[in-house]
Design a binder for these strands. Structure first.
Lengths: 114, 114
DNA sequence: TTGACATGCAAGTATTCTCTTGCCTATTAT
DNA sequence: ATAATAGGCAAGAGAATACTTGCATGTCAA
């Protein structure tokens, strides 16, 4: 989990993820072409993304294709978003109730306690 | 967004978030008491979390209460999880289809192309 | 084989983080 | 007022990161 957040903590690496999302399976050269980083910089960032399992590679002759792997992002969701969003959902539910109460004067919302 | 990921990229800070999630509104001293970091270390980490808007503070006399703010986590979800999970969902849908096809011999699933 | 292309590797430097140390201010209780 | 408690501030050391440079390896086409 540490490698994952560390990997995401750099703007250049997040840009790379966006590029791969827009066009998956790019080679190193293709990625470099549209970014103002040196090739070596991109290589090193890609290595960090690989270590975090956010990018998978496949060799094709002398080229190296890079593919996005969204699974670790899902892990973040389950460990750090789901768990922490409950208060927010509760707040939204309460807000909704209050709006409904104010608008129609009803105390119970449809569906009741659920 | 950069401050946010940077804030989450440290294990100590993630521990602090967990502590606040377990027991919201703790003072600096309370947080220190159960962590093997120095008070100054905790202070600095909390400052980073504040800068990322993950923690909100409230003064009470000479004490400082710390509250978790999950909204930035939701922002991560919308920018980095939602957007990237589609391939995964597609994969799951395909898997489901294949399972249904194998189990019942049907080619089309309910709901059609959608 | 030879030249061009795509990528790999490693060392050096500069920047940024993290942790520690030492002292200071503000509030509470006696 | 005094002591104890809760927290604040800032400089410095050490570690981790990010970026750059130079050269090396492997692959393709002619």
């Amino acid at each position: 989990m540490d490698l994952l957040f560390k990997a995401l903590a750099d703007p250049g690496r997040r840009t790379l993820l966006d590029r791969l999302h827009a066009n998956d399976g790019q080679t190193l050269g293709e990625l470099c072409r549209h970014l103002d980083m040196t090739r070596q910089g991109v290589t090193q960032h890609l290595a960090v993304l690989e270590a975090a399992n956010l990018v998978a590679v496949q060799r094709r002759g002398r080229e190296k294709l890079h593919f996005l792997n969204p699974v670790p992002l899902q892990d973040i969701y389950e460990r750090w978003i789901c768990k922490f969003e409950r208060p927010r959902l509760v707040a939204l539910r309460d807000l909704k109730r209050r709006l409904e109460d104010g608008g129609r004067g009803a105390t119970r919302t449809k569906g009741g306690k659920r």
